[in-house]
């Protein structure tokens, strides 16, 4: 796929693939056309993107300051919330939330760390610190 073909989404990574859309004209004819997303959608996509980035950055700062554990950072990076993370890692939600505390996280055993590492698709060494 060539980059940035869509004039409505100039400087963005997304919105570059063509999809099928349906249309209706008054008078009774349905029509379908393959095309890019309309330009108005760029705003809402960008908004969601910005929010995710903001959350990841905030989490990274908190981890560096020692307020939360790296689990939070990787959770945000994978666009997860605690409930989804608990389902993916197979750890109950209240334990997941407890592991957000740095003190608790440091005492975790290998088995639990391994579960998180598989869920985030990284190694245990990576899990112990933020990038």
């Amino acid at each position: 796929m060539e980059k940035n073909q869509n004039p409505g989404f100039k400087d963005q990574d997304f919105g570059q693939s063509k999809e099928l859309f349906y249309y209706y004209q008054d008078g009774g004819n349905y029509d379908k056309k393959v095309g890019f997303h309309p330009e108005s959608d760029a705003v809402i996509l960008q908004q969601a993107w910005d929010l995710f980035k903001e959350r990841i950055e905030a989490a990274r700062k908190k981890v560096i300051d020692g307020e939360t554990s790296p689990v939070v950072y990787y959770m945000e990076k994978n666009l997860l919330d605690p409930l989804n993370l608990s389902m993916m890692a197979g750890i109950s939600i209240w334990r997941v939330k407890r592991h957000f505390k740095p003190r608790v996280f440091q005492r975790l055993n290998e088995k639990t760390l391994e579960k998180y590492a598989t869920a985030f698709n990284i190694t245990i060494d990576q899990l112990k610190k933020v990038e």
């Binding site: 099928l20 349906y22 249309y23 969601a48």
Partner: peptide
């Protein structure tokens, strides 16, 4: 924005 994404973006054929 998320409602609009649900309606338009995610393979709905629009609306």
């Amino acid at each position: 924005g998320q409602i609009l994404r649900m309606a338009e973006e995610f393979g709905t054929g629009g609306a």
